[in-house]
Design a protein around this nucleic acid. Structure first.
Lengths: 216, 216
DNA sequence: CTCAAGAAAACGAACGATCCTTCTTTTTAG
DNA sequence: CTAAAAAGAAGGATCGTTCGTTTTCTTGAG
């Protein structure tokens, strides 16, 4: 049985996957050709097609890895006990995603944020992927809703606002900052942490006077 | 001079542009073929190529329209006097972008959010577009920094945090919510407004005790 | 008002290029 | 030495674009 060792197979597979991920992060799924991936991986077509049935499967593999990474970042941050305030929580998720370069030490810090945007774009044209993403966000939201309810029960936050809305807002903040990071790169995570902290310091504008910066 | 009337030419051009926008929002820039656009517009290749030199120019035109729309949404909201609190400001931007369907009454409410994501994806592979986007966000941030400084000067917000960080955070919130809207569709703008209002009610967690949900 | 003339606008088949994939051959590992 | 793994040229399909032809629309004369 002259087959090659299993770790060698796994290594080849990961080599291809990471090369594809770099290409996709650079040019998107549909603007990168198979030959781009082959060149980036330093392999031939025959080699790659032994590990992946086609381009779609390659895309799916990268997408799944990205989603798994992001989902786990949200969940790990949510597992922190006691639950940190929102700005710290959001900072933790972002740092986790940014730090998660390739499995090995890798160059590009914004690889996952970039891939995340590509995944979003792909989600718009693939209902099945949209369902997966929806499910993932649902899971995360459930976790974060509990944390928000914790804030409210402890009297740290107004309790007359649905926790779901707050959780969605916090997730949106993570998404938006990650997008900024992917697009412009030069944004420290501390900026959101501080920015949200400042917003949190504004105190509820009561229920009636939303528009007056001063009251008379 | 038997040329056709100018409005007819403009109408054709917009017909093509809107058809392309719908296709791009549905499938992304590089996964939609020219024939997809031709079919959506109900025109032939010869007709389309009389108005646009090629696919790249078509993409550029759609991209510019999207960026213009979003930029103006940010700027119009910033022009409100007196400056509303952050949650209202953000809500205004989002409602403006969501309401801006096609020039004419159109079907898809999430057309611009969808295109925005496609534009982000394209930005990752086009440095020139990245520069344009960076410039646009820079302009918006300047406007919003002034508003934030207004909050701080009025004593509504902690003044020891850079206004730039707060502005970036608010923009990130808009971006993130728009992304959620494009991806899942079923999110009312009110959710962010309320969510941020709740976050604003948390009161600054001081400088030392960030982790304790209760104090002893 | 009718109608023909001419130019612009639209058509759509066809071309070269590129894409993804396959398959035979060569190399490599056990 | 053998079978798996990798190579790389070739095939079929699709892409963006061009270009010769047809249709449409404006204009000016009758």
């Amino acid at each position: 049985m002259p087959r090659v060792s299993q770790e060698r197979l796994d290594a080849r597979r990961r080599q291809i996957l990471e090369a594809a991920a770099r290409c996709f992060a650079r040019n998107g799924f549909h603007a990168t050709s198979m030959q781009d991936v082959l060149k980036e991986a330093g392999l031939s077509a025959g080699a790659v097609y032994r590990y992946f049935a086609g381009k779609e499967e390659l895309i799916a593999a990268v997408v799944n890895e990205v989603l798994e990474e992001i989902r786990s970042a949200f969940e790990e941050a949510a597992r922190t006990s006691p639950p940190p305030p929102p700005n710290v929580l959001i900072g933790a998720v972002l740092r986790r995603v940014l730090r998660a370069k390739s499995e090995q030490g890798e160059e590009w810090a914004s690889l996952y944020p970039r891939l995340m945007i590509q995944v979003w774009a792909e989600t718009l044209r693939d209902p099945a992927l949209a369902a997966v993403l929806r499910q993932g966000f649902e899971t995360v939201r459930v976790l974060w809703v509990k944390i928000v309810e914790g804030y409210q029960d402890a009297g740290m936050m107004r309790a007359d606002i649905p926790a779901l809305s707050v959780a969605r807002t916090m997730v949106a903040l993570v998404q938006g900052f990650a997008a900024q990071y992917a697009l412009f790169g030069d944004v420290p995570v501390q900026a959101v942490e501080l920015g949200l902290e400042a917003l949190m310091s504004m105190g509820g504008p009561g229920r009636a006077e939303l528009s007056g910066p001063r009251d008379g």
